[in-house]
Design a protein around this nucleic acid. Structure first.
Lengths: 225, 225
DNA sequence: CGCTCGTTTGAGGATGGTCAAGGCTGGTGG
DNA sequence: CCACCAGCCTTGACCATCCTCAAACGAGCG
């Protein structure tokens, strides 16, 4: 669901750098910024819901988005966090099978899924790019699968921090999400996540400036597998 | 790696039903069967290895394939089983990040990934189909992720059996894979899998004709989530 | 018959979950 | 400027689930 504001937000915003970055006039980035609108979501706002008909494709400009599913009994699994630059909403065929929410106040480009699909049918390069983005996402999720299936709590937390550092491009970064979000992403409880943060800090592998501000000190230890 | 036999197996085999099923002359199925070769792999043969350059795309004709990754210390996570009709090898971009092996003696169509990619660049419908297949696979893996992250051992085993029944199209079917394979797929140990099979049989939810031959008796119980 | 390989079963222990309480921080209002 | 409150995070004690280690079982095959 889009907030009302979208109705008035149909003026596309062009960012020279962004367009230049992902070269090509017909690239997905260009298209999203040309035919898309910029929409803002406040913290915890729903972007789309599990079971809804697919309507838009999104690209994060600012903030952070969580993709998740909730089981009947309330258990929640987060399947991905999307950060600035990430594209999401491509994976679904007709209906979303997950929900998406803003972790923090976020701003995203949105473009009609149907428009993108018809453009893709005329433009094989675009279609191939869509395939490629989806394939990369699949590979990413397979990595998460290994964490969930075969790694213990500390390895999961370390893997998560390394991933976040990589995406931030720095060994010092701020986590946009809560411990609960991290727990639901790593298949753990909030207490286990918290205990492992503390433990990593005690063994001088990381440093916590605040509960959300992390500095990785010993990347070698973290990167063991 | 392809076994030697592939050099001599370049004669395409056409199956009228298969072509008709996935309509369209330019559909992936048609292409795989036209430009592809049929290759046989014996039980446990490697089809490709983690880290290798992507060379082929595959479609299972007969048998079963497992996609997996092994960590340094030997822990193995299987990310998917592919059964007759399934296409795999589309997800990788340049290098495989997983390995593929035949679970049982298997026969597959193989087509050059590069050929497929260049066909896709001329044919938006094909490119869109490749996107769509990859998207479906992503959705499937997200389902597995929920199992690994948020479900207990019995729920995982039940979910696995339901999935296999669905793919077999029958509530009575034969498992091509060992308990060890199932354990490595579900993020459990072989003992836990075995105990849960026994327990499900004791509570009359399933019936085991042999260790590999399963009949689902009480689908309602199995399908709780 | 007596292998071997895969599976099942059992006993004990470790990891992570549950429940409960206390602490920190940032925002609001007196 | 301080007091209070709410939300988030941490810590502790106990417990359940699943893992580990070990042994026995059973089907297939020489």
């Amino acid at each position: 669901m889009l907030p009302q504001s979208v109705a008035h937000a149909v003026v596309p915003r062009h960012s020279k750098q962004q367009i230049a970055k992902k070269q090509g006039k017909r690239s997905l980035c260009y298209i999203l910024e040309t035919i898309g609108a910029t929409v803002d979501y406040p913290r915890n706002a729903e972007i789309y819901g599990d079971g809804e008909v697919v309507e838009y494709v999104y690209k994060v400009i600012e903030g952070a988005i969580r993709i998740y599913k909730v089981l009947d009994d309330g258990r929640r699994q987060i399947s991905a966090f999307y950060l600035p630059g990430d594209v999401f909403g491509l994976a679904a065929n007709t209906h979303y099978r997950f929900s998406a929410e803003a972790v923090t106040h976020s701003s995203v480009f949105v473009a009609k899924h149907s428009t993108l699909k018809s453009l893709a049918l005329q433009d094989p390069e675009l279609a191939t790019e869509l395939w490629s983005i989806t394939a990369r996402e699949l590979e990413y999720i397979q990595g998460l699968m290994i964490m969930l299936g075969r790694k213990n709590a500390q390895e999961r937390v370390m893997g998560f921090l390394l991933d976040m550092a990589g995406r931030a491009g720095s060994s010092a970064f701020e986590l946009p999400m809560s411990r609960q979000d991290i727990a639901d992403y790593l298949g753990l409880t909030i207490e286990t996540v918290s205990r492992n943060f503390t433990q990593l800090e005690n063994q001088l592998t990381i440093k916590l400036l605040s509960s959300r501000r992390v500095v990785l000190c010993d990347q070698d230890t973290l990167a063991k597998d």
